[in-house]
């Protein structure tokens, strides 16, 4: 087993509001090993982006980490603030945003943006930083990088810009990449390219990747393991094959049934009835029980137990296949 790069333990993110405290992330735990891609899926508002922002320390106020631990290698980073956290960002954790059209500064050349990041984190001269920047652009597949480095972002297409964004996230050689919906804003053909680029970089460099997306196709294509989030909680976590083909949590099963597959006929897609509850109105017990077909009384009363088998775990009283039960 490869070395664990990121370890999140019982992470809680809270937003204090006038009407009470909201918990967009509620006791979430997972690990990511070097060279591994962990997919994090869920509907909008399930807390998947919030988890990523908490790890890199970029939660928008008033959201804050209210509990749990985040370990990056041997460093505990959830308690870091200010300067130490800033030095970590870009250097040890890189981040890729959703929309490549807006995540590059339009008034600076991509070379400027690359070299400033490299010079900020690595002890190199300006000339070395520039050479590294060119190498980085070549690595992510920008043709004629030496000529293109002094171009402005608007001179690139969307897919090329996302490559530049990836080069920027990687340029100080971080151990962990948080990719927040990296393909959502791109054309389908470009999506595939970006996904295979991420996979290649992850394998070659041994970077741990947290791939946040709502797209099951992207997960199936790219991720090694997948964490399914629902209403701020981790519903299920396990190897991709297993979760996709043999889901243990009824929500995951519903999510899979509602994903269209080209190979299937033109049946009506199944829907999960209802919608995800808003954070202020979470039901007692398992957050999914109002929409769950197999929910029983005890699902409504208390938190559901964490159950585990060899490679995966789920949080459910009635998993769809047998797993060992652990104490709730």
């Amino acid at each position: 087993m490869a070395k664990t790069v990121l370890s999140v333990r019982d992470l809680v993110v809270e937003i204090p509001t006038r009407w009470g405290v909201l918990r967009p992330v509620d006791r979430v735990s997972y690990d990511i090993a070097a060279g591994e891609i962990l997919g994090v899926v869920g509907e909008s508002g399930a807390g998947k982006s919030m988890t990523g922002n908490a790890v890199i320390g970029l939660l928008d106020r008033p959201a804050q980490i209210a509990g749990g631990e985040i370990w990056l290698g041997d460093t505990r980073i959830d308690s870091l603030r200010g300067e130490p956290m800033r030095k970590l960002r870009g250097r040890r954790i890189g981040m890729i945003f959703q929309d490549p059209l807006t995540s590059l500064n339009p008034l600076l050349t991509i070379g400027d943006q690359l070299t400033e990041t490299i010079l900020e984190h690595l002890p190199v001269t300006t000339a070395e930083a520039r050479a590294r920047a060119i190498a980085g652009l070549e690595e992510v597949g920008i043709p004629a990088a030496r000529d293109r480095i002094d171009s402005y972002p608007h001179e690139f297409s969307g897919g090329m810009r996302q490559r530049v964004v990836i080069a920027l996230a990687l340029c100080a050689e971080p151990e962990l990449i948080i990719a927040d919906e990296p393909t959502t804003a791109l054309d389908v053909s470009v999506q595939a390219q970006i996904i295979s680029l991420l996979k290649r970089l992850c394998r070659e460099r041994g970077v741990a990747v947290m791939l946040v997306t709502h797209d099951m196709g992207v997960i199936a294509e790219a991720a090694d393991r997948v964490a399914v989030m629902y209403a701020g909680r981790l519903a299920e976590l396990g190897p991709v094959r297993e979760v996709l083909t043999r889901a243990a949590h009824p929500y995951t099963a519903g999510l899979m049934a509602s994903t269209p597959l080209a190979s299937q006929g033109r049946e009506r897609l199944r829907q999960i009835p209802g919608s995800m509850p808003r954070l202020g109105q979470l039901p007692e017990g398992c957050a999914f029980h109002p929409r769950c077909e197999i929910a029983q009384d005890r699902c409504r009363l208390g938190p559901s137990p964490h159950i585990e088998d060899g490679s995966g775990r789920a949080s459910c009283w009635y998993p769809l296949h047998n797993m060992e039960k652990e104490d709730a």
């Binding site: 970590l88 870009g90 945003f97 807006t102 400033e116 900020e120």
Partner: peptide, 15 residues
Amino acid sequence: DYIRFARARGLRERS
């Protein structure tokens, strides 16, 4: 977004 991205790359506040 590009300001968030600049922060996420660990640039100094002043920059």
